[in-house]
């Protein structure tokens, strides 16, 4: 039997981990919580949260972030469902190639991605100029440095993520089930409606929460594309704590709490939903 006695050396060996985790995870977390409940003049106060939820400027940044995350995640999920379905229908070789490229482009995010879109669709972008020359007004009303531009860029990193997260579920829907249901007289419509959809929905909803959290926390893409010019929650937090002009760390902390709680909530919902998917797929 293993000697489970603890000796002093074992405890000592845990010290580096404890120092790092306390210094760079727990203390910063405690500091954010405490700061967020500190008033501008010091002392305990809910002032910062009141500002965050009543001042138009901050409220708008929260709304913008929620909207952009929700819309880009919806588009991501819909495209992802089709791609995930297609991935399960092609040959092994094609599948490997598609997965490899999706995986590769998932590294193409943040500043390089924003930059690529500036080359393509910015004010002097290749497509912008080309389409103008050809007289195709597809992008005439389109402005990359705006809400719709941000959505377009976010969708680019949401789609491969959605496809990668969703395609295992499509594999879970076995061919035998389709055969069995066909034998029992179900049409293709009935198969999708009664069997596939109930399995796919929780998986899609779970993936949605991941994409949503992903977009809420995305900073570099928006920062590179719009600098501080677009009012997003992450951008506001960044400039409140490390801005060039003036900083308000307490308010920044309160907004960081709002963002952090949104993330935790989405990941918690995801965990619940995925548990159901795993149960369904046995």
């Amino acid at each position: 039997m293993l000697k489970k006695r603890m000796d002093i050396k074992l405890i000592l060996a845990l010290i580096p981990f404890c120092i790092l985790i306390i210094g760079f995870e727990l203390l910063p977390a405690v500091s954010v919580v405490m700061e967020s409940f500190t008033g501008n003049e010091g002392g305990f106060s809910l002032e910062q949260y009141v500002s965050a939820f009543t001042k138009m400027f901050y409220l708008q940044s929260i709304k913008n972030s929620l909207m952009i995350s929700a819309v880009s995640s919806c588009i991501g999920i819909i495209a992802g469902l089709f791609i995930a379905y297609a991935i399960t229908k092609v040959s092994e070789q094609t599948r490997t190639r598609v997965l490899m490229i999706s995986n590769m482009t998932s590294n193409f995010a943040g500043i390089p991605l924003a930059f690529a879109y500036i080359i393509l669709l910015g004010s002097n972008g290749i497509f912008t100029i080309l389409f103008e020359q050809w007289g195709l007004p597809i992008f005439s009303g389109f402005n990359l440095y705006s809400w719709s531009g941000l959505i377009l860029v976010y969708v680019y990193f949401q789609i491969p993520l959605a496809a990668l997260l969703l395609y295992p579920t499509f594999y879970g829907i076995r061919e035998e089930w389709r055969e069995a249901s066909a034998l029992l007289g179900a049409s293709t419509y009935h198969f999708w409606r009664r069997i596939a959809l109930p399995i796919l929905l929780p998986a899609a909803a779970g993936t949605f929460t991941i994409l949503f959290a992903n977009a809420m926390g995305a900073y570099a893409t928006a920062y590179a594309l719009l600098g501080g010019n677009y009012n997003l929650l992450v951008i506001r937090i960044g400039s409140l704590v490390a801005g060039d002009v003036f900083t308000r760390p307490q308010l920044g902390s309160a907004l960081a709490m709002v963002l952090g709680l949104t993330m935790v909530l989405s990941l918690w919902i995801n965990e619940r939903l995925m548990r159901r998917v795993r149960r369904d797929l046995g």
Binding site: I21, A29, E35, A213, G217, A256, L259, G260, M263, L267
Partner: peptide, 20 residues
């Protein structure tokens, strides 16, 4: 402890660290 960073975006981590 090890899963917390997964839920915390970089911006949120940075806020506490700058202060400290």
């Amino acid at each position: 402890l090890v899963l917390i960073p997964y839920a915390a975006p970089g911006v949120v981590m940075a806020v506490g660290l700058i202060k400290l």
